[in-house]
Design a protein around this nucleic acid. Sequence first.
DNA 1: CTCCCGATAT
DNA 2: ATATCAGGAG
Length: 210
Amino acid sequence: MTKEEKVLEIIKRLDKRYPKVKTALNFKTPLDLLIATILSAQATDVSVNRVTEMLFKKYKKVEDYAKVSIEELQNDIRSINFYKNKASFIKNLAKAIIEKFNGEVPAKMEDLVKLPGVGRKTANIVLWNAFGINEGIAVDTHVKRISKLLGLTDNTDPEKIEQDLMKITPQNEWGRLSHLLIMLGREICIAKKPKHKECPLNDICPSSKI
DNA sequence: CTCCCGATAT
DNA sequence: ATATCAGGAG
């Protein structure tokens, strides 16, 4: 089985288990999702959703983030890790969106990654979930780990892994592949204790202990 | 490569 | 106690 065939089989099986897969982060607007995704770095989606439920009622426009004091913003997201960094990212990003993009979250990779606190992973999440655009593949900790376990890549650098996955995956499946692997990583192919017996990919996974 | 730095599961 | 969690910047 070629890697191209393997990816299609993986998508086919995971699609059956996770139909209509999408981000687990709650959001209504592109701005909401951008903020939530920044907050989600090395944090659980449950923690992020708990904070954003309050946050998105208080901050509805980029101007709200741009004008709030850094201390107040820090306090509003204090339960999330790296809250000082993230508060600065969000405030500076809001200013940048107002100055450079007329107050609208840009729907292009090259624009998104210029924003403070936004890398390709965050940009890919926003592009696909908020704009329906397949411009790349979000490689997070789950996608990184599982791609290697499945033998889809030999690289460890997320950007190289993304390139490898993009080469062997039809572009219209890029967003879905990423989110399907994330779901598998959260529920079955757990970093610490993979549930090989329950895994729908155990017969085509080189790392399976079954 | 290090730092950031709270909540949760085991 | 400690490993891990939808990472990114310096």
